[in-house]
C-alpha cells in the first residue's frame, strides 16, 4: 500500500460543540503535508459537510480520512437512520432537517450536493434502518 496517513473521527449525534473538529484537524494535517491549497479547500469542505450531516441527521457515526500521495479519500459512515430516497436527498435545496436545526442556520439542503461538487469521485449508499456510507475521493 505504501505511504498513507489515516485520520479517524467519531462524530456524535447533535454534538454541535465538537462539530467542525474533524474538518479543521484534517485541514491542519493536509497543510502540514504540503497538499496543494485548492485540494485542501475542497477536502475541508467535504469533510465539514459530512461532519455536519452526521451531527444533524444521523444517530452518530465516524469519518475516516485517508491521505495517499496521489489522492485523498474521505469516508463518512453512520449507524442510521438511513435515507429513504437518495436521489431526492442529492437535490439542491432538499432537506429533512427539522425547524430547530434550520433556526441554527443549518439544513439548507446543500450538504450532499456540495460534497458531490467538491469531490472528484462520489458514491453514496444508504439503507433505511441500517445507515449511510458516503465515499468521496479527491485527486491531488
Amino acid at each position: 500500500m505504501g505511504e498513507m496517513v489515516k485520520l479517524e473521527y467519531r462524530v456524535s449525534s447533535e454534538d454541535f460543540e465538537r462539530a467542525g473538529d474533524a474538518s479543521s484537524n484534517t485541514k491542519k494535517v493536509l497543510k502540514k503535508i504540503g497538499i496543494p491549497s485548492d485540494v485542501i479547500r475542497r477536502a475541508a469542505i467535504v469533510t465539514y459537510e459530512a461532519e455536519m450531516n452526521l451531527v444533524i441527521h444521523s444517530m452518530g457515526g465516524e469519518i475516516v480520512v485517508e491521505i495517499f500521495p496521489d489522492r485523498i479519500i474521505v469516508t463518512a459512515k453512520d449507524f442510521g437512520p438511513g435515507i429513504p430516497d437518495v436521489d431526492k436527498a442529492m437535490q439542491e435545496g432538499y432537506s429533512t432537517a427539522p425547524d430547530r436545526i434550520r433556526e441554527m442556520g443549518f439544513g439548507a439542503g446543500m450538504g450532499l450536493p456540495n460534497m458531490k461538487k467538491c469531490s472528484d469521485d462520489f458514491s453514496i449508499e444508504s439503507e433505511v434502518g441500517v445507515g449511510t456510507e458516503v465515499v468521496m475521493t479527491l485527486y491531488i
Binding site: 505511504e3 498513507m4 496517513v5 489515516k6 502540514k32 503535508i33 504540503g34 500521495p69
Partner: peptide
C-alpha cells in the same frame, strides 16, 4: 507570494510518511 511552510518534506511521499509517524 505565498510563503509555503514545509513542515516535513518537499516530497509528498516522504511528507506523508513523516505525518504517519507523527500520528
Amino acid at each position: 507570494k505565498p510563503k509555503k511552510l514545509i513542515s516535513f518534506d518537499h516530497d509528498i511521499k516522504e511528507a506523508i510518511k513523516k505525518m504517519e509517524k507523527t500520528e
